[in-house]
Design a protein around this nucleic acid. Structure first.
Lengths: 351, 351
DNA sequence: ATGAAAGCGCTAACAG
DNA sequence: CTGTTAGCGCTTTCAT
């Protein structure tokens, strides 16, 4: 067992050439004859040679590793994002190292620290729910390691950001509810200091204004959008004397749980209360009634982010600061369809 | 930008000592005076020194990286497993590199290849749905890199395996349905060449036999347990002349979708058909009625696997071959409760 | 308690 | 087209 790994010198010895020739042959250097190259590649295969990436990285000061920090793992959206990043990265011969913060700023800092230690060439990150301070990203900037922020991005920091058009999404969701006849819509969302939530709220208000409705503070409810919060929200609504007739909840899981409890207590969805969620998680298609929700292509976000990062890595490390905004769709399903149309599948409203 | 990383020699120069002293001080070597050590540690902090892990790994032939291959990312179970692995690994100063195969054997091979290239010290893996051949793990074995298989494990291969007691889980789920009065239970599951599915099926049959029921081949249905399969299964059942009165579907998502469609077509759950799922994914708690399901602690599996692997790494590379079997619980919920008890929460049946 | 020096495996400038 | 050589940053044996 544990047989020694062959090195370029082992190959060199076998072929009676120098180490550099092997090295060059293996990296397709132009000044190596086809014959030699072929012989080398064949022998390498035969002997099970694998480049020692540590030696290589030590020499090159380049790791071909990209760090990815995400706030959670178990959502379709995140999986898609990772797939998108993975595809682009693999294509460009980069590895990705994934860390998930479980929405904890402390863990996010530990992961960032570790990725710095591992000397990733670049970083793609989405902030944890309670991340306020961004100083754990400073060392990357100091060392010229480019960072691309995705989805949950810092409002103030410099850098490249890839987000969906949350404002448009919020606007469209709300507009849809209004068009279905809702007159008192509640917006249930999370900490407004986060771009994703503040933008959706902006869109919400804009839609109300655009339809000559006034926004009253009681229409806004801030929670952490968890499974538990869904139960609490339902209870709160059940206790209200002036109940809403529409809910725009910015998370499918939370919206689903809330809907479940409203139904259990005799509220009819969508007749009494129409509901719109956010994310197009699988769950939105399985609850009864199916949940109207906002869909956005995680894979696209991942691809755009990775492409951008890798460009910065290879071409010009242009440390300019800009934001890439991607579209999203409103998927209209049963939970908000008060006015009946005949629909076979999801109705899609491009934002 | 891009300031140069300080090395031990930079520190050495500042303190007028040699590189080796710095190295030793930083790794708590016993023959370094407290004073020196303190000075070194302080200076290191001040200068933002970080050990170059590549140089270190090149020297030590040890990466402190553990590879983890899993078949999918977006399930609570997998997230828990990863958390479990992460906790133990971090504790022991190991990093984990996660690759997800998306249930594709081809991708699994590519990931294994890459992890080998990255020279992980050890590997934890769960097989993709269509993985049959295991030769991509041979190079690890040849190089003495220990492997721990978890959950979806090969029946025949050597090595350490961590699984749940699928047979007991299948037995308990089926027994529960029988006790609720079900007389014709269908078992809907996936490829029986996989240990997880064959064991559950074993348990299913054993429960029938134990209650003097005969197993007829029509009671077994093999699908891929996907979202789509759920729809198809429902249709198939609706078309049956002799309908089952109980379903044991070995995946929550699939069971939920199936239940949704049965309900939409007038079947009452659990009165007409009682349903039991598998995994205790969030979805099982949100569908209506809530789904009875089999719960097992992913975190525990992760912890046990990681602990075992790290032991092999540090102590004795005992290449013995054994299987660790963990318990699971049956969480009894509405979807299978025909006989009413008064329950407040989930009823737990320890297996 | 500390230093000198060799070497992990690879790459690239330089020389031919 | 190929070889020689130095060095990436760290660890460790041997010497003091």
């Amino acid at each position: 067992m544990s047989k020694k790994e062959p090195t370029i010198y082992d190959l060199a010895e076998h072929l009676n050439v120098s180490g550099s020739t092997i090295s060059r042959a293996l990296s397709n250097h132009h000044s190596i004859s086809k014959k030699t190259r072929k012989k080398v590649v064949e022998l390498a295969k035969e002997m099970g040679y694998r480049k020692n990436s540590f030696a290589s990285q030590l020499r090159n000061k380049k790791t071909y590793n990209i760090g990815v920090i995400i706030h959670e793992l178990n959502s379709d959206f995140i999986t898609s994002v990772l797939n998108g990043i993975g595809k682009v990265a693999t294509e460009a011969r980069y590895n990705i190292i994934i860390g998930h913060s479980s929405e904890s700023s402390t863990k996010e800092i530990a992961i960032a620290d570790n990725l710095l230690y591992q000397r990733v060439d670049g970083l793609i990150t989405s902030l944890a729910y309670d991340t306020v301070n961004l100083s754990h990203y400073d060392p990357f900037i100091e060392r010229g390691v480019p960072i691309v922020f995705i989805d949950r991005v810092p409002v103030d920091a410099l850098g490249v950001k890839v987000v969906i058009d949350n404002k448009a999404a919020g606007y469209n969701a709300t507009k849809h509810l209004i068009e279905q006849g809702c007159e008192r819509i509640m917006h249930i969302t999370a900490d407004l200091s986060k771009n994703v939530y503040s933008d959706r709220f902006e869109g919400f208000k804009k839609a109300l204004m655009g339809h000559n409705m006034v926004f009253e503070p009681e229409q806004l409810l801030i929670t952490n959008l968890s499974e538990k919060a869904g139960v609490k929200i339902a209870q709160q609504i059940l206790n209200m004397e002036r109940k809403p007739d529409g809910l725009f909840i910015t998370n499918d899981l939370c919206a689903s749980v809330c809907m479940y409890h409203l139904k259990k207590n005799g509220i009819k969805v969508p007749e009494d209360i129409a509901i719109v969620g956010f994310n197009n998680d699988i769950i939105s298609r399985i609850v009864d009634p199916k949940l109207t929700t906002v869909n956005y292509e995680g894979e696209e976000i991942g691809k755009v982010a990775a492409t951008n990062l890798i460009n910065q890595l290879s071409d010009n490390p242009s440390n300019s600061s800009y934001t890439i905004v991607l579209d999203s769709d409103l998927l209209i399903r049963e939970s908000s369809q008060i006015k009946q149309h005949d629909i076979l599948n999801d109705t899609i409203n491009k934002s």
